[in-house]
């Protein structure tokens, strides 16, 4: 049952912004009990793919499901997947704790859940301060706390290590490993190789919106030169990534 509940299936996803095709017929899966790294150069379409997966961006073609159904069609989406988006937004004048309590109310969780996830993410003390004064790392933790509110069976994270110091990255690694160890699915995107090598067990590599390779991390690191060599040879030959940084 658990392997159906948390399985992410991306099938033929395509998204165009005007004339630019951000994602093109992309298909891959992420399995429960495993941390999957979603790797690609800046502008490869990672963010757009993750946003399509949870219904924030409408796909032009293809379908993405979590546990067999679309995220947006779930009656309790917060229990299906927790999502940490890159540069997540907070109202600067609201405290971290109040931010969490807003989304407790929206999803029908008891308000006490806000304090539990603050504790889980090490923000108990900072929770009563306004988000305006938070560091980038604290904002990342608050975004993660928001994702954990529903104790979801899937965690989806867009560049989660951005802004974290080495200690924070170690903490994140333990949290994600622990999450997957309990039979849940973790899918995170990154454009930096050491992060993926430290965190992931499986790797999905995309470039210019298309899948270039997927498989266990060990398969890539076994090659001479490791993941870096594989990544560079796969993503820089021929179809070079578009300039312009992260996708919109």
């Amino acid at each position: 049952m658990t392997d159906v509940a948390g399985r992410i299936v991306v099938s033929g996803l395509t998204k165009r912004f005007g004339r630019v095709t951000a994602v093109q017929e992309l298909s891959f899966t992420a399995e429960p009990g495993c941390v999957t790294g979603f790797l690609g150069p800046n502008g490869a379409g990672k963010t757009t793919t993750l946003r399509m997966l949870v219904g924030l961006v409408a796909a032009d073609a293809g379908v993405a499901t979590i546990g067999g159904s679309r995220y947006a069609a779930s009656p309790a989406p917060g229990r299906v997947a927790g999502v940490v988006l890159e540069a997540a937004g907070f109202y600067p004048g609201r405290s971290g704790r109040d931010h969490l309590r807003v989304y407790c109310t929206a999803s029908g969780y008891p308000l006490g859940r806000a304090d539990e996830v603050l504790e889980l993410t090490g923000l108990t003390e900072a929770g009563r301060r306004r988000v305006r004064g938070y560091s980038l790392g604290m904002r990342q933790r608050l975004a993660l706390a928001t994702a954990l509110l529903g104790d979801p069976s899937v965690l989806i994270l867009d560049e989660p290590a951005n802004g974290l110091d080495p200690e924070g990255i170690a903490w994140l690694r333990n949290l994600l490993r622990d999450y997957a160890g309990r039979g849940r699915t973790v899918l995170f995107s990154s454009h930096t190789l050491p992060e993926v090598e430290q965190l992931a067990e499986r790797v999905v590599i995309i470039a210019s919106g298309r899948l270039v390779r997927a498989g266990p991390l060990a398969k890539f690191t076994a090659v001479q030169g490791g993941l870096e060599r594989v990544f560079l040879s796969l993503t820089s030959s021929g179809d070079s990534p578009r300039p312009g940084g992260r996708p919109t």
Partner: peptide
């Protein structure tokens, strides 16, 4: 409209996709 300015719209529509 502040939900778009402060980018909280994403969290709002993740909690309530409808």
């Amino acid at each position: 409209a502040g939900e778009y300015r402060h980018r909280t719209a994403a969290a709002t529509f993740l909690a309530t996709p409808h």
